[in-house]
């Protein structure tokens, strides 16, 4: 094993900095996006399914599916992105289900949040953590 002590410490310090830096600012942005969508209403749980890979092989293209039977709209947020907004699906009368699949960018390991606005005006949410692989080889 040839890794120097100094090298290992430097690695550790860099890692900690990356993880700790953005947390507070990001939560404010997430709260703001949520408030805009819900108008400040309480957000419950259940009735919404969010499917994400446990480990994304590359953060540039992460498949995400969401389903909330009876919803009129579903908003997706990525908590750890520079800006948390991802997309909002508004379902029309000819939608056969209130579900959709897309591919999204994740700046790193983080929580993806889906919030559904139901037909009765209530809100529910689901959130999954997605680990984003930092590849071995850039290419």
């Amino acid at each position: 094993m040839n890794l120097t002590r100094r090298g290992a410490l430097a690695l550790g310090a860099g890692f900690a900095a990356t993880v700790l830096l953005p947390a507070t600012a990001l939560h404010a942005a997430v709260d703001e996006a949520l408030a805009k969508f819900t108008g400040g209403a309480a957000v419950g749980e259940g009735g919404i399914t969010l499917s994400t890979p446990e480990i994304a092989e590359n953060g540039n293209t992460v498949p995400v599916s969401v389903s909330a039977p009876g919803a009129v709209a579903i908003m997706l947020l990525a908590e750890g992105n520079p800006s948390p907004g991802v997309c909002t699906f508004n379902f029309g009368p000819l939608a056969a289900s209130q579900s959709a699949t897309t591919r999204i960018r994740l700046a790193g390991t983080q929580r993806v949040i889906a919030v559904a606005k139901m037909a009765d005006g209530s809100f529910v949410q689901a959130a999954n953590e997605v680990k984003v692989t930092i590849g071995g080889c850039g290419g």
């Binding site: 092989e57 590359n58 293209t61 692989t133 930092i134 590849g135 071995g136 080889c137 290419g139």
Partner: peptide, 22 residues
């Protein structure tokens, strides 16, 4: 290799669509 799987480096899939470069 770090967090990535090392393959045999076969060429049969090229050109590839890489999710990284999209």
């Amino acid at each position: 290799i770090r967090a990535d799987h090392l393959s045999q480096g076969q060429t049969n899939g090229f050109p590839v669509y890489r999710l990284k470069q999209t």
